[in-house]
Amino acid sequence: MSAVKQRVTIIGSGNWGSSIARVCAQNVKKFPDIFEPEVRMWVYEEKIDGRNLTEIINEKHENVKYLPGISLGDNVRAIPDVCQAAKNANILVFVLPHQFVYKVCESLRDVIDKDCRAISLIKGLDYKNNNLLIFSEEIEKILGVNCAALSGANIASEVAEEKFGETTIACKDPKDGEIFVKLFHTDYFDVNVIGDWRGLQVCGALKNVVALGAGISDGLNYGNNTKAAIIRRGLLEMRKFGKTFFGGVHTETFFESCGVADLITTCSGGRNRKVAAAFISSGKTIDEIEKEMLNGQKLQGTTTSQEVYHFLSARNMTQEFPLLTAIYRVIYEKAPPESIALDLRTRLNE
């Protein structure tokens, strides 16, 4: 472990970014011999009641827009300029919507030190040139640093309220795993480290798509039996997708917190499920419902659903993943919502 004290910067400040900043702020105080006491958090500047959000966070130690009522800690400092926030950082924690990753990383390319390490908390895959890319690997390419990944059954508000849960960290270098355990593990946020960073991120992306299916089922009032079938079939398709298209993916990863546990909690209480359930009876587009319900935050499942469908279509393999395909068609092609269950039944009877 490095003798240089580690400076931590959170790249992102939504509800999950704010929650994880709070965890890090507690742990840097717990290990003063390892970490600098201040946790910097890049905040996309916006006005709240005529004041800058960064000013409010630094005064109240609370993200009043995305995590109201929760103290982040007096050692979290909000900074509106991403380059200033990342300057001299030894650890970058990426927790922002995946559509902003490339622009932010390009701006940081000449700012960060080469001894920096990164970790991605981004739930998604990137679709480019008919391929799906892993975000930790993309961050590594742009910045030239090691990038681990964290994912698990982690509803942000519950982590912020210190309700017990587990998470999974995947990294190539065991030494990175040691320092990330110190940064993220708490009595209420239990960390397990594995080596399968691709499997972890496939789980983190696809579980949001399956959660849309769970929401469609709830919107139709189909009950728990149908939702359980969607979750089970979703887990099978997630595993098949990972092992078919990404080298080095392990079946065991799908039984970690980043796999089945995250799938269950997202299908029970996540925003993708909630918005999809409202979409069914609304007569509106999924984008309109998102704007009405999420206070400026973005769904990850809808974008990933489009990317996965186009990826499979380019390979003539949509029929191999009937649930993922049915979810896309209900959301974007006005297919009957009932096809969620009908397609499952047809597949199971083959």
Rank of each mutant, 00 (worst) to 15 (best):
G234V: 08
T253P: 04
E166W: 13
L312A: 12
N295R: 05
H250L: 14
G242P: 05
K227N: 09
C83G: 14
N63W: 06
V8Y: 07
A25K: 07
L150K: 08
F184C: 02
A89Q: 11
K128T: 09
G199H: 13
D33M: 06
S305R: 09
W197K: 13
A278Y: 04
E45F: 05
K5V: 02
E333S: 08
T244P: 07
Y309P: 01
D81G: 12
R117S: 00
T186P: 10
A25F: 08
E237V: 10
E320S: 15
L108W: 08
L299I: 08
I327Y: 06
V104T: 15
K29L: 15
C258N: 01
Y66R: 03
T251P: 04
L263W: 03
R273I: 14
I142M: 00
I289V: 15
H61D: 04
S136M: 02
I34M: 06
F321G: 12
C147I: 00
N131I: 03
D187I: 12
C116A: 13
S282A: 08
G215Y: 07
A214Y: 03
I139D: 02
D262S: 12
P174T: 03
K141W: 04
F100D: 11
I340Y: 02
I34N: 00
I194L: 07
G177Y: 02
I134H: 00
K240Y: 10
A228C: 10
Y188D: 15
I231Q: 03
D173W: 00
L108V: 11
E256P: 01
F246I: 00
T9G: 05
S281I: 13
L143A: 02
N90Q: 14
S151L: 12
T251N: 14
C147H: 02
C83D: 03
H185Y: 06
G195F: 12
N131L: 09
D187P: 02
N52G: 15
I194H: 04
V209R: 08
K5M: 13
